[in-house]
Every structure is written in structure tokens, then in C-alpha cells.
């Protein structure tokens, strides 16, 4: 059996591992799965107060949707970002936190980071569904764009999983990785136009030099956030430039992550 065949054959294991995460996470909590919604809502509230009410971040009016609501605009970028950080943060520790299992049973190891993506994706899907509903209530016509939104959700999942797979192997060698990444991800978030619009960076580039803007656009997450805003907030076709970058980054990240994981997994048990 080839590696890929074996991986495919273990899809039932993957769905069971996803179930384990989803079901086990909120067991014995009063609100259960609702907690996964309270979390982004609270973040939305905080960022809206700080950046919209206090700092008065001005956003562009959605075209053609005509939406001009900061919290909705924010969430179109923040939900994909939160998904990305959760996958990377939990995915990189997926091997070390399941060490007892990895040391005692053989199964295709890639299912561990995949299961993190699956269970996080499940929550994200609910969040995005709720956001789409809110956008509809606010007058945005998001419905025809839903299939395309799903496609880009899959692309972002591939991108995040690739990074998580590579870091999962790295974490086994250097346990510092998780501490380092929590700081790096925080910095990364503020380097991505999530709480402020890209136009602010454009303005800064005019006075301080074009290189700032060019550098900014190298950030893969910037393109993903743009695409989700085009589709959900503006309700229009995304910029082809953004689309191509998203596809490119997703494929590159997943392929590299896959290769790194495959090369590293044989030595895992000796190091755990």
C-alpha cells in the first residue's frame, strides 16, 4: 500500500479523531458548543470598541453591497484569521500532546494535525454560517457567493495545515516552537489588515515609500483576508491577483508541510 492510499484508507480514523476533539472539548460545560461562538463575539466586541469607537478606524463602504458596519467588516477578516491561528497553534502541538498514543499504536500520523484542522474547521463553518446570516440581515447579498467562500475556506485550511504539519515536526525537536509561535502569530495578526483597512497602509506608503506597501502584500494572510472581504462584505468577485496568491500559497504550504512531515515522522517516536 502506498503512503497516500494508506492515508486515504484511514479516513474513518480521521473523522473519529475530529469527533473526539469536537465532542470532548465542551463536555461538562453548561453552554457547550455555544462557547465556540461566544469567543469570537467577545473578540469582536473588544476590537470594535477599541478600533472603531476609540481609534475611529474608517473603513470603505462595501461595493456593491453598500454595507458600512465596522463589526461586520471586522469579522469577515477576523474569523478566517482566528481559524488560521487555532489550526497553527493546536496543530503544532498535535504530536507532542498525543505522545502516549503515538508511542504505542501505529496509525498514519498525519491524521493528528488533520484532526485539528477538521475540528477547528467545524467550529469555523458554524461561525461563518452565522456571519453570513448576519450579513443577510444587514442587507448584504452573500448567498450567491457561498460556494466560492467555501472554496477559499478549503484553500485557507490547506495553507494553515501545511504550516501546522511542518511546525508539528519542528516542535518535537524544539519544544520552544509553541512559545515562539504564540508571539509570532500575535505580531502577524497586526501586520495583516484585519482590524484596520489596507488603505491606511497605502496612505503610509505614499509618505514613507512604496516598499512598505509592497512588503505588506507579501503576507499570504493579507490575500486571504482580502478575498473573504470581497466575497462576504462587498459581495463581488475577488481580485484575480489575490486569488492567484491564495492558491499559490495554499499549494506551496501544503506540499512543503506534507514533505517535511513525511520525512520527519519516522524519527518521531525516538524523540518523543
Amino acid at each position: 500500500m502506498t503512503y497516500l492510499q494508506e492515508l486515504f484508507a484511514s479516513r474513518e480514523l480521521l473523522s473519529n479523531l475530529v469527533m473526539r476533539e469536537v465532542k470532548g472539548k465542551y463536555r461538562r460545560t453548561f453552554f457547550g458548543q455555544v462557547w465556540s461562538l461566544i469567543n469570537p463575539l467577545a473578540t469582536m466586541l473588544i476590537y470594535t470598541i477599541v478600533f472603531s469607537l476609540i481609534f475611529k478606524a474608517r473603513i470603505e463602504v462595501g461595493h456593491p453591497s453598500g454595507l458600512n458596519i465596522y463589526p461586520v467588516w471586522l469579522m469577515c477578516g477576523l474569523l478566517p484569521w482566528l481559524f488560521f491561528t487555532r489550526v497553527v497553534n493546536h496543530g503544532l502541538s498535535s504530536i507532542t500532546s498525543n505522545a502516549s498514543l503515538v508511542k504505542k499504536v501505529y496509525f498514519p500520523r498525519m491524521n493528528l494535525p488533520f484532526a485539528v484542522t477538521g475540528s477547528t474547521g467545524y467550529t469555523w463553518l458554524i461561525e461563518m454560517g452565522l456571519l453570513s446570516f448576519i450579513i443577510l440581515l444587514c442587507g448584504g447579498m452573500v448567498l450567491p457567493w457561498l460556494p466560492l467562500i467555501l472554496v477559499f475556506m478549503v484553500l485557507l485550511a490547506l495553507f494553515a495545515t501545511g504550516i501546522a504539519m511542518a511546525l508539528a515536526i519542528f516542535t518535537v525537536h524544539f519544544r520552544d516552537t509553541s512559545h515562539f509561535m504564540s508571539i509570532a502569530l500575535q505580531m502577524w495578526m497586526y501586520l495583516t489588515p484585519i482590524v484596520y483597512p489596507l488603505s491606511l497602509v497605502k496612505d503610509a506608503a505614499v509618505t514613507h515609500g512604496q516598499w512598505i506597501y509592497n512588503l505588506f502584500r507579501l503576507n499570504p494572510m493579507e490575500h486571504f483576508v482580502n478575498v473573504f472581504r470581497y466575497l462576504m462584505y462587498d459581495n463581488t468577485w475577488p481580485d484575480i491577483y489575490d486569488v492567484l496568491w491564495c492558491i499559490g500559497w495554499a499549494v506551496l504550504s501544503f506540499v512543503l508541510g506534507f514533505i517535511i512531515f513525511r520525512r520527519g515522522e519516522k524519527r518521531l517516536v525516538v524523540l518523543l
Binding site: 474513518e12 480514523l13 473519529n16 479523531l17 469527533m19 473526539r20 465532542k23 470532548g24 463536555r27 461538562r28 498514543l101 499504536v105 496509525f107
Partner: peptide
């Protein structure tokens, strides 16, 4: 946190 029943399915698929 999962029940015996759920764990039988989980562990079965791991094996």
C-alpha cells in the same frame, strides 16, 4: 470525557 461506547468506536478506528 467520552463514554465507553464512544471510546470503543474511537479506539477501534485507531487500531
Amino acid at each position: 470525557e467520552l463514554t465507553g461506547r464512544e471510546n470503543i468506536y474511537l479506539n477501534g478506528s485507531i487500531l
